[in-house]
Design a protein around this nucleic acid. Structure first.
Length: 615
RNA sequence: GGCUCCGUAGUUCAAUGGAUAGAAUGUAGGUUUCCGGUACCUAAGAUGAAGGUUCGAUUCCUUCCGGGGCUACCA
């Protein structure tokens, strides 16, 4: 596997205690288990793996003893029993233990739960990990300037932005970049069509968003092209040949040549249309809530990389064939020979990417780089990373292709030519509309100004969309069902947002009642199971960030946030909070509620989703 | 053809080699004179097939079946 994760998922035991609120307890238990194994069976266990106890069993942590049966030469249940007794006698944090076959389930003292809760209360940075003093560069979005953004781009943008947020929370300095594909034959196609059929139309005159206007002419080109092919075929020309000979295609090729030679009229048209597209994209990005520290354009970078090819030739990394083209031999890596420079000396896609890697390093000096690009380019990035390694540069290591699967529609694959694409702007607008009508039906936003209401509709609509796309493992191909995506119940963004809003309502009320929501430390409470589970989830927040960062997987955060909201609702349903008569219980529950609210807000932010206080 | 990724309830998604494979949705029931019902609870329902490794396999290995992607001197 080439795509080695460069942020190793470390066992918790190696991480500094200050990072995780649950960690001190875990380590204490791991240490006791280690000592127990040594004391009872003379087993020197290097690694103690603790797992979360399954819901249907009593306990918090589970230790699996099966691996030690041989060394201990006893039955699994017997080992577990002895270890459990040892734990109870030697670790004051343990309240009880249960043995099920080879599984030892450990329950914690109530005081330990309060201790964890207090730990979070006192944590100066409860939602971020320690600064790792390291830069990470992330490239995402990477659109073409000849067509508007579609559903696939939404997955890309949401993923890229979310991973940036997660890495930032995990303590990295994150630099967000976007490499826009603004040149090439496909761009000339829309330029040519505009020249032929545009009649001087502009975004202003047509009322179309700039990128949609340009996209319209890309489609127009394709239409005209097909007609010409058809005509040629009817004249008896071979279809394959017709595709190459169609006059409009030849004109587009001429135009590309003229562009590369800086022909002023072509450049002027190109710049004009680019301006429109970039204006359009800027609006879409604003609506998506994503941003970039630097936007690179291929028109500025496509010539880079030739110098690297020269260097590589001198070092023997590349070789030149008789016709003058330059190649790299990757057969030892299980790949093929790959072209890096055409025989006419011009660069190809991969040459440009080599150059851009160097340019980005010169600009920011980040040794780690993440490319958020669809999995149809897996092979390309495999080759690129091998080449960069062989060039042995400061940016040769630490590259990662965050490869994500395609988004399918129920009707099948999205195809721009057949008009079965889901346009990003349309979809976002539709989601916001749905959010609006649902919210107005419920009638809970009286007192909102028109502006506040609109902001809320955006937050809810985009929240639903982002959550829908991010909850799935990025690697996997996913199905986009328009009806389900606008659902606001169940495992959805609005469900989580609603839970947050409800908590906010409660803390507002508590504040007006003059209740202090921070519990007093050191007191011992008898905790209900739903309270313990909530504390457990809250205490796990930082390790979830670590896990999500290590795997570049916003889905980990999405799943966690959903579990947290669900657990809160259970807790909320079972127990009284503001109406609780016992003041100590009321305070601790209120503390739990407000902490849950803050945690939901923080983790939704990692997904790029806003948590409104009222909805 | 070669390389590669993926096949889990009707559907959409989960599950560092661990317990009775979890959720959501849909279906069928139920709860709350209560702090915001977009809530909570209950039920039925699934690992493509066959082997292998293991105390233990959705997970690792092999073969087969089915699907996606890549296999351009395009980007």
């Amino acid at each position: 596997m080439f795509a080695l994760n460069w942020l190793p998922l470390q066992p918790l035991i190696f991480i500094k205690p200050v990072d995780f609120n649950m960690l001190g307890i875990q380590q204490s238990i791991q240490k006791s288990l280690q000592e127990g194994l040594q004391h009872l069976f003379s087993i020197d266990a290097q690694e103690i793996v603790l797992q979360e106890t399954k819901k249907e069993f009593e306990g918090t942590f589970t230790f699996v003893v099966f691996p030690f049966t041989k060394q201990a030469s006893k039955a699994p249940a017997q080992i577990a029993q002895l270890l459990g007794e040892y734990m109870l006698a030697n670790n004051p944090k343990i309240k009880a233990f249960q043995v099920v076959q080879g599984f030892l389930n450990l329950s914690l003292q109530d005081a330990v739960w309060v201790e964890i809760l207090n730990g979070i209360n006192q944590d100066a940075h409860p939602f971020t990990l320690a600064d790792k003093k390291e830069k990470v560069l992330i490239e995402y979005s990477s659109p073409n300037t000849n067509k508007p953004l579609h559903l696939g781009h939404l997955r890309n943008n949401f993923l890229g932005f979310s991973v940036s947020q997660i890495l930032d929370a995990a303590g990295y300095e994150v630099i967000k970049t976007n490499l826009v594909n603004d040149r090439g034959i496909h761009i000339c196609k829309s330029m040519l069509a505009y020249q032929l059929f545009g009649n001087g139309e502009t975004p202003e005159s047509s009322g179309l968003k700039g990128d949609h206007l340009v996209g319209k002419y890309y489609v127009a080109f394709d239409k005209a092209y097909k007609v010409e092919i058809e005509t040629l075929v009817q004249q008896g020309i071979d279809p394959e040949e017709a595709k190459k000979q169609a006059p409009i295609l030849l004109k587009a090729q001429d135009m590309l040549l003229a562009w590369e030679q800086n022909e002023p009229s072509v450049i002027a048209l190109w710049e004009q249309m680019n301006t429109w597209v970039f204006d359009g994209f800027a609006k879409s990005y604003a609506q998506m809530g994503v941003s970039f520290d630097k936007i690179y354009r291929e028109s500025n970078t496509y010539l880079l990389g030739k110098k690297l090819v020269d260097e590589g030739l001198a070092q023997g990394v590349f070789f030149r064939k008789d016709d003058g083209s330059v190649w790299i031999d990757l057969t030892e890596e299980g790949l093929d020979e790959k072209l890096v420079l055409r025989r006419d000396g011009t660069s190809v896609y991969i040459t440009q990417d080599m150059g851009t890697a160097q340019l980005k390093y010169e600009d920011f000096g980040a040794k780690r780089s993440v490319y958020v690009v669809g999995n149809e380019q897996d092979y390309h990035f495999e080759v690129l990373f091998h080449i960069l390694k062989k060039l042995n540069k400061p940016f040769s290591e630490g590259n990662y292709h965050l490869s994500y699967g395609m988004v399918d529609l129920p009707s099948g694959k999205m195809k721009s030519r057949e008009g079965t694409v889901v346009d990003a702007d349309d979809l976002m607008a539709e989601m916001v509309n749905t959010a609006q009508s649902r919210t107005l039906e419920l009638g809970k936003i009286e007192g909102f100004s028109a502006e506040e209401a609109n902001a809320l509709f955006n937050q809810l609509g985009l929240g639903a969309l982002k959550y829908f796309l991010l909850k799935v493992d990025p690697k996997k191909r996913m199905l986009f069902n328009p009806e389900e995506s606008i659902d606001f119940q169940g495992n959805t963004g609005p469900f989580i947002q609603y839970t947050h809003a409800r908590i906010c309502s409660m803390t507002r009320k508590a504040a007006s009642m003059g209740i202090n929501i921070k519990i007093s430390a050191g007191k011992s409470y008898e905790l209900a199971e739903s309270e313990q589970e909530l504390i457990f989830l809250l205490g796990n927040y930082k390790s979830k960030i670590q896990e999500a960062a290590a795997q570049f997987a916003p889905s980990v955060i999405a799943q966690y946030t959903y579990d947290l909201a669900k657990q809160f609702n259970k807790f909320y349903n079972e127990l009284s909070i503001l109406n609780e008569e016992n003041v100590d219980s009321r305070n601790i529950r209120l503390n739990l509620a407000s902490l849950t609210g803050e945690t939901i807000k923080a983790s939704l932010a990692l997904l790029g989703i806003v948590a409104p206080e009222r909805m």
